[in-house]
Design a protein around this nucleic acid. Structure first.
Lengths: 198, 198
DNA sequence: TGTACATCAGTGAACGCGCGTTCACTGATGTAC
DNA sequence: TGTACATCAGTGAACGCGCGTTCACTGATGTAC
């Protein structure tokens, strides 16, 4: 068709964006390239002008998702996120809104189930994103006076609590919405409220 | 071939067992019926003598996995599990052994990522299994003097901490084993050791 | 207890379909003179 | 600045392959008489 280089770069981004949404909604394996290219507004054959394989696209999707979520755990406005207290962030992370927004939410939670079976490059992006998220929470803990070791341990446990709660609440929301919301509430209380395990 | 009814029932179980292992290792979508039946020791055509569809098999697998894990969070010996303290159970759950034993470990963690996309019957089995696991932990908390509401909240948060830590540690183990083990250690400390978030 | 027959768990080929990938072709973009 | 041509992002048909599922067939099991 003849397309400018600028336009081609935009089209490549459009493919990655469509792929991220579809991968998160249906799983990487369940999305075919024909459907994917159609969702991005193109025909199947053009895919290989932008990526050398589906695996390469998965890696590009993961790199983008992880980069976009830096400092924005729930996929929202990055600047506003950065100004949030840890408590407010947990409230947002474990909200019904975030639970229902699989397509745009935290990639560490959205791809957690798929990650062990992705290609090596995509796995590396995922691990980098996880390390970054933990590092950001660790820095906040150090800023509040914890030792680096304490802050790291607390950040890891806190992030795992957040991801675990979100993943479980998403796993049961279709068949037991009450349990799904109770899990979110219990997670919020554990992260921000009084500990009930004393 | 002509097979006794007893033998046929055993063969059906063999198919479910092979399916559970393969589904957990490679994901439900990635396992074809031909490979599955071969792994169970049969040819493809016989599948529909036992199940009316792949979805029906998935539901049977989930029902079996959830039932087998009752009281045995890490897939081990049920009787020994029941005698364990909550602390010992967390140590086992967040062990390297359990992390590496995807095929036989806790089904709530093993299927957490796939659950949102499974058929309705399989999702119902999963939710039932999760509710049972939380109920068992709640009973333990009540036995230690917590109010039912407190115990339920604590059990949900604790289980989400365990699953989240395990899922994240599995997601990065291939590319960052040090991070994977640090997550397990942080989870164990958060569940059993001194809280570091004070 | 023996014989005749229906049942049904197996086999393995075949169905239509969508997968990831390749290919020949098109035509505007971008470059060289 | 205009013309000639190479580049390359598109199109859409086609490749071999494995998917879930169906089918005709086999033959020991289990039942009826």
């Amino acid at each position: 068709m003849g397309i400018s280089r600028e336009q081609a770069a935009e089209n490549r981004e459009a493919i990655i964006e469509a792929a991220e949404r579809l991968f998160r909604e249906h799983g990487v394996d369940a999305v075919g390239l024909t459907a994917l290219m159609k969702a991005a507004g193109f025909t199947q054959g053009g895919f290989y002008n932008h990526f050398k394989s589906k695996d390469a696209l998965v890696a590009a999707v993961m790199a983008r998702a992880v980069q976009a979520s830096k400092g924005a755990l729930a996929g929202g406005d990055v600047a506003r996120e950065a100004a949030m207290s840890p408590e407010a962030r947990a409230e947002q992370y474990l909200s019904v809104t975030h639970r229902d927004d699989v397509a745009c939410g935290c990639p560490m939670a959205g791809f957690a189930g798929d990650a062990p079976r992705l290609g090596e490059e995509a796995q590396a992006c995922y691990a980098k994103g996880l390390a970054d998220a933990i590092a950001a929470m660790t820095a906040a803990g150090v800023g509040q006076g914890l030792s680096p070791a304490q802050a790291t341990q607390a950040a890891m446990a806190r992030f795992a609590q957040m991801v675990g709660t979100l993943v479980l609440s998403r796993a049961v929301v279709n068949v037991d919405p009450a349990l799904s919301e109770a899990l979110l509430a219990a997670g919020r209380q554990a992260l921000n409220g009084q500990r009930a395990d004393a």
